[in-house]
Amino acid sequence: MLKVSVYRYNPETDKEPYMKDYQVDTQGKDLMVLDVLELLKETDPSLAIRRSCREGVCGSDGMNINGKNGLACVTPLSEAAPNGAPLVIRPLPGLPVVRDLVIDMTLFYKQYEKIKPYLINDTPAPAIERLQSPEERAHLDGLYECILCACCSTACPSFWWNPDRFIGPSGLLQAYRFLIDSRDTATEERLADLDDPFSVFRCHGIQACVAVCPKGLNPTKAIGHIRNMLLSRAA
């Protein structure tokens, strides 16, 4: 039996959030945290979580697992709570809670939309694809794989304080993904939009984002690249 402590809050019935303890029979298996929550939901279907692909590519089930942000579906018990230690599950921090482990991600998505997350190229499109060398394409590796799970941004203190004005690691990773795409022609416009005291420069290089990214991406590095681009544009 595994002790699982889960953050519960239903705005219709609860005055304030509380931690509820469950006992889950894992049959000694090294289950993924999501499997444990699904087992738990068999006895208590009132627990609200988001989940979809269960293989770490859709980014639905970001949550705070024993103090660290991660995806429940690719976090095994042996990593989250080794040696039968209790599992403690809370919603991702820093954004409002809708119910239980479901958070309101509006601000997170707003920041993503702010960076114009789409290719801009006003030259007429060719009859085939726009050519791009493997080297140019390689610049996108480590950037395009982002799944928008929000583990990084909700682990970032700067984002906690200014989620409405600091783009946050996830959005900035995507900003750089388009800045560096050889097919994109809006570099100047994109950089001009980022050159204010909040959007980029609230990153203080804490690197909490790097520590939690379930896809192994490095937003801090991307932010450094953006800063260098801003610098060479201004200097």
Binding site: D196, P197, F198, F201, R227, L231, A234
Partner: peptide, 18 residues
């Protein structure tokens, strides 16, 4: 663009450089 009249250089980059 997010602006802030009370910031020193009015630009993130100039503040950061300074």
């Amino acid at each position: 663009m997010v602006t802030q009249v009370t910031s020193f250089g009015r630009s993130g980059l100039s503040d950061w450089l300074l």
